[in-house]
Simulated assay, not measured.
Amino acid sequence: MRPYTEVAVGILIRGDGALLLTSRPEGKVYAGYWEFPGGKLEAGESVEQALRRELQEEIGITIGPAQVWKVTEHDYPHALVRLHWCRVTEWSGAFEMREAQQMCWQHWPVTVRPVLPGALPVLEWLAQERGLAFDPEILRNK
């Protein structure tokens, strides 16, 4: 069995309930797919430390407290990942897309396409919390 790549992921939720999604930059696997921002844990880092570092490096913000909400696993062709999902409602700084990615605040229903497969369960849970129907198939296609 392949080893897991541990990933810290931030679900940034604005006061009006909108979620921040960013596109995967050119040159990366799944380039152009939409995802929640975050990245790999480095040796010795906690999930919160990794998320804090990744969001500063990738999108230029400093986050407030971040607790792990859920943990999922996804088997991509290129990597077996364990995703540590953290809800983030406090941050400071101006958003800067430092990897030439795009960003988009999304209300329900989420309209960006395609969404990275590993993010679909989280979008479904968030929709269920809001009492909304969710069809993951429509987010898989371009």
Score class of each variant (00 low, 15 high):
Glu57Phe: 00
Gln102Cys: 06
Ala119Gln: 00
Gly10Phe: 01
Val29Ala: 12
Leu123Trp: 01
Tyr30Gln: 12
Ala94Met: 09
Lys70Trp: 07
Met97Glu: 12
Phe36Ile: 06
Glu96Thr: 14
Met97Thr: 11
Arg130Ile: 11
Gly118Asp: 01
Ser46Ala: 11
Thr72Ile: 04
Ile61Glu: 05
Arg2Gly: 04
Glu90His: 15
Val47Leu: 06
Ser46Arg: 14
Leu12His: 02
Arg87Trp: 00
Gly44His: 12
Glu35Ile: 15
Val71Asp: 00
Gln56Cys: 14
Pro114Met: 10
Gln106Pro: 02
Lys70His: 13
Ala18Pro: 00
Ile13Leu: 14
Ala8His: 10
Leu139Val: 11
Pro65Ile: 15
Lys40Cys: 12
Asp75Val: 10
Cys86Thr: 14
Tyr30Ile: 09
Pro3Gly: 10
Ala133Asn: 05
Pro37Trp: 05
Lys70Glu: 13
Pro65Trp: 13
Gly64Asp: 11
Trp34Met: 06
Leu19Pro: 03
Pro3Leu: 11
Gly27Glu: 13
Ala127Leu: 10
Gln67Tyr: 09
Phe134Asp: 01
Thr62Gln: 15
Ala31Thr: 02
Lys142Arg: 10
Gly10Leu: 07
Tyr33Leu: 11
Tyr33Arg: 08
Pro37Asp: 03
Val9Thr: 11
Ile63Tyr: 09
Cys104Asp: 04
Ala31Ser: 13
Trp91Met: 15
Asp135Ile: 14
Pro114Thr: 06
Arg53Ser: 05
Leu132Asp: 09
Tyr33Trp: 10
Gln102Thr: 05
Val122Arg: 07
Arg2Tyr: 08
Arg52Val: 00
Cys86Val: 15
Trp69Phe: 12
Arg53Leu: 01
Gln128Leu: 14
Leu20Lys: 04
Leu126Gly: 05
Trp91Glu: 13
Ala18Met: 09
Trp34Phe: 07
Arg87Pro: 00
Arg130Asp: 06
Lys70Val: 13
Glu48Ile: 04
Leu120Ser: 06
Gly131Cys: 07
Ala94Asp: 10
Pro121Gln: 11
Val71Gly: 01
Leu41Arg: 03
Arg140Cys: 11
Val110Gly: 01
Lys40Arg: 15
Thr89Asn: 00
Pro136Arg: 13
Glu99Asn: 06
Pro77Gly: 00
Pro136Glu: 12
Leu12Phe: 07
Leu20Gly: 04
His78Trp: 05
Gln102Val: 01
Glu57Asp: 10
Phe36Gly: 01
Pro65Leu: 15
